[in-house]
Computed example of a mutant assay.
Amino acid sequence: MTTAAYDTDVLVVGGGPVGLAAAIEARLAGYDVVVVEPRQVPVDKACGEGLMPGAVRALERLGVRPDGHPLAGIRYLDPTRRVTHVFRGRAGLGVRRTTLHAALAERAGDLGIERRDARVTTLEQDADAVTAAGVRARWLLGCDGLHSTVRRLARLEAPARGPRRYGTRRHFRVEPWADVVEVHWGDRAEAYVTPVAAHLVGVALLGPPRTDFTSTLAAFPALAARLAGAEPDGPVRGAGPLLQRTSRRTRGRVRLVGDASGYVDALTGEGLRVGFAQAAAAVATLRDDPDRYERAWSASTRDYRYLTSGLVTAATSPARRGIVPLATRVPALFGTIVERLAT
């Protein structure tokens, strides 16, 4: 579709899962696409690695079917209580981040999407085109994560006011003991346990600054006992601060997608589902007024923003101790929230 005036139709900055999903969306829509990413595939990242059913459907629509461990639902636990919600429709999927990234990269390669090993340090645009990393394109999709360079260069950042939380993650070679994502609630942090393969689980810890993985894990005695003697698979990885805000998601021919467009917290675990929905919306509205994407972005993130913000507020207040007891007493409410976020 490109002409001599452009190097490509769509320049995607950031070749992580959301960036590759956006590139695949654009290619399937008939656009020429270039992805700029300096890191080699696959890229690992500290995350929970549980794909909600909506994320699994989005991947299948793109022709991506990564190997993983079926997830029947979500379970909340504290030292004395537990409540489980089983997804009402199809299952979710626990997928190691590197496995997911490799599957998306393979699909992008099969579609002939060009990848350039480069970093974006400047961004220039006029009424007709946007240029970054030496590539002149009709549109640019900024999919470069929590600490987005595109967001900063496009002057779309906003002050992040709220609790500053961080995440760490490590894998352990042990047979999964449940077919759900377990969320263990402690006094100051949460532990997410996600089966990602037949003999592998990922443990992600979310908490305030300086949340040390080893000492925080020890604060969950039942979980620590499950993992006693299990061999770690890879190093501890960290991410944060998680809270990121934007003033808008568009400027001229630039669109922000995924974590680059703003992020509340990993607490509810549906970040990739939301990111894939944003990627689809961004591509579908490329030729429209930028406000069309702003509205689509708001619609695709509304439940995530409001429900997650409310849960984070409770989790960082004296009400924290009541979250699991409330979910246990009113399982229908817990299930309704999970379903809203899962689909």
Rank of each mutant, 00 (worst) to 15 (best):
M1V: 08
M1E: 09
T3E: 00
A5K: 15
T8F: 04
T8R: 04
D9F: 10
V10E: 08
L11M: 11
V12I: 04
G19K: 05
G19D: 04
G19A: 09
A21E: 00
I24E: 03
R27P: 00
G30H: 13
E37S: 02
Q40C: 13
P42C: 06
P53K: 09
A58P: 02
L59R: 10
E60D: 11
E60V: 01
G63P: 06
V64Y: 10
Y76A: 04
D78N: 09
R81I: 05
R81P: 11
V86K: 15
R88F: 05
G89E: 08
R90I: 06
L93I: 01
G94H: 14
R96L: 07
L100C: 02
H101A: 02
H101L: 04
A102G: 03
A103D: 01
A105Y: 05
A108R: 12
A108P: 11
A118F: 09
D126P: 02
A127L: 12
A132T: 01
R136M: 08
W139Q: 01
L141G: 00
G142L: 02
C143L: 13
C143S: 11
G145A: 05
L146A: 07
R151G: 03
L156T: 03
A160K: 11
R161D: 11
G162K: 11
P163H: 03
H171W: 05
F172I: 07
P176E: 00
A178G: 07
H184E: 13
E190F: 03
A191E: 02
Y192V: 01
Y192L: 12
P195C: 06
A197F: 03
L205R: 13
L205G: 08
L206K: 13
D212E: 14
D212A: 15
F213K: 14
F213T: 03
S215K: 15
S215T: 14
T216L: 12
L217A: 01
L217V: 02
A222S: 11
A228F: 11
A230K: 09
D233V: 02
D233C: 07
R237Q: 13
G240M: 02
P241C: 14
Q244C: 07
T246K: 10
T246P: 14
R248E: 05
R248H: 13
R251T: 09
R253K: 04
R255N: 00
R255K: 00
V257L: 09
Y263F: 15
V274G: 10
F276C: 06
A277E: 11
A279D: 10
A279G: 08
A280E: 13
A282Y: 01
A282L: 07
T285P: 00
L286E: 11
D288F: 08
D291L: 12
Y293L: 10
E294A: 07
W297G: 02
D303A: 15
Y304E: 05
T308G: 10
S317H: 12
S317V: 03
R321H: 08
G322A: 13
G322Y: 14
V324K: 12
P325F: 06
L326F: 14
R329I: 01
P331D: 12
L333F: 13
F334L: 01
